[in-house]
Amino acid sequence: MWDYTDTVKDHFRNPRNVGEIENPDCVGEVGSLACGDALKLTIRLGEGERIADAKFLTFGCASAIASSSALTEIVKGMTLAEAEKVTNQDIADYLGELPEQKMHCSVMGREALEAAIRNYRTGSTEKVGLEGRVVCTCFGVTETEIERVVRENDLSEIEQVTNYCKAGGGCGACRSEIQKIVDRVRGASEQPRTAPRPARMTNIQKIKLIEETIDREIRPSLVKDGGDIELIDVEGDRVLVSPRGTCSTCPASPITLKDLVEAKLREFVSEELRVEEVKA
């Protein structure tokens, strides 16, 4: 018996927005009977490409039905531009969570949404994931789709890839190829990022880049130890910061500022920067 959350059970037993919109503006159809699940999403747009109504028809298990119901609830009221950013994780989060083996149901939801948006923009009814080379012939999953679920869900094991998009879940002949894709995608994301530094920055650009660098490169390692850092001001090349949490009492704080904060900001923003501590 699956350990479904109450939200999953509720959306399975009382699914929202079941049906098919007549003369819809967007139609997205993914999956097949043979695959064990399929979803047809129809959308009616209002003013400013805002989703006025969304309905679904789904063949599949409880989590496929619940994911479809959740998808329609999430996107109603969004503009297409907003809907484009919805991920499979958003669907899973809306439902509380899905069992790992059922994550492919949330991916199916995201695929149907993409197909629908693409249908509206281009008139195409082709499944989005079908671009590129088919890796898993049992379930018709392409390299592009595998790369995408690995990247978006930070997957590292073949079994996870199977849980998220079914690839490798049939005869298993493509498993070694899936491993290569996983290694490649992860290898690319784990390489140190080199900063795309604009030659000349306005002050606003510089502050924005400093903030981004703190968020991405510095804060995570401080938070791990219970600390944090706040950007107070930027005056020319002087970056004024204030330690927070355990950092504010840590005797090694000056070293952290030089070795971590200043080093990272110099690497990613500008060689000229100097970091100074201010007591807030």
Binding site: G36, D37, A64, Q101, K102
Partner: peptide
């Protein structure tokens, strides 16, 4: 059905 066991087929 596949879905009851967690298998895909």
């Amino acid at each position: 059905s596949a879905c009851t066991s967690g298998a895909l087929e």
